[in-house]
Write a protein that binds this DNA or RNA. Sequence first.
DNA 1: CAATAAATGCACTTCTATTGCATGGCTACT
DNA 2: AGTAGCCATGCAATAGAAGTGCATTTATTG
Lengths: 138, 138
Amino acid sequence: MNTIEVFLESKKVRPTAMRMLVYKYMTQSNVAKTLGDIENAFTKADRTTLYRTLKTFEEKGIVHQVDDGTGTIKYALCEAGCNCDIDRDLHLHFHCSNCRETICLTEHKIPQINLPDGYVAEDMNLVVKGICEHCSGQ
Amino acid sequence: MNTIEVFLESKKVRPTAMRMLVYKYMTQSNVAKTLGDIENAFTKADRTTLYRTLKTFEEKGIVHQVDDGTGTIKYALCEAGCNCDIDRDLHLHFHCSNCRETICLTEHKIPQINLPDGYVAEDMNLVVKGICEHCSGQ
DNA sequence: CAATAAATGCACTTCTATTGCATGGCTACT
DNA sequence: AGTAGCCATGCAATAGAAGTGCATTTATTG
Ligand SMILES: [Mn+2]
Ligand SMILES: [Mn+2]
Ligand SMILES: [Zn+2]
Ligand SMILES: [Zn+2]
């Protein structure tokens, strides 16, 4: 029983070999990954299985989708204690137009937005595009 | 010379029949439209022509794309005097999960976001999802 | 009017998301 | 241990939208 196995079971996800590999892969970098990225990271991986793995992870609160405006959905690990709650957990995402990577800025929560009367907010997405720390040569 | 014709020429866009129709259609509602929406609004319209029409409109500052996270790009008219400037013009978009419509809240600019050192912002997208004024029964 | 440039229409490609269905493997229960 | 049933996997196929190539039509210019 390694820690990944324990973690997945704590999230009510059966720790199959592929699921453990995907989870481990996601922990190894802090940038959001597309399905294609993950597929390419393994030589022998079926796209559908990965698709459903990510879907399961999302349903069980292990990952969240990141829509960075590139047209392909990305996935990133949720923080410990995250419930993808609109007030507590939603954070800024940054997409670098140079290296094309997207990272979670989990420390930067989405500021309070006031809406016109009658509008009810349920979810939110804030993406900033530009040049990342790495590419701006800092 | 009607007003649409004059307007398009002022934007350096040749006022063809289709372009005038599309522009007129866009002015008739304040919700963002997909290519498909526009295609369906006319009985005899070619998707490619519309696609390129919208692209031209975008390049000439007549419309802006709206990425509301549904997976299909939408288009909405720019305000008078809009330059799609990151500080002055970028505004909030609201997507209603009930009626599935997306509207520009042009009065609601995106608040100042502070980024970690080394990050440079060039563009931004803020979408709020929830229930719109109309659907919340106000 | 002829030459040129721009806009349009059709067909096709590409890319990603998503589903149906058959098979393999694990679990729970006897 | 044996077996029924559920869950995960893999393959194939579909759906949906974006984008491109090229031929044709329409507009502009001299
Ligand atoms: Mn994130
Ligand atoms: Mn808008
Ligand atoms: Zn970068
Ligand atoms: Zn609505």
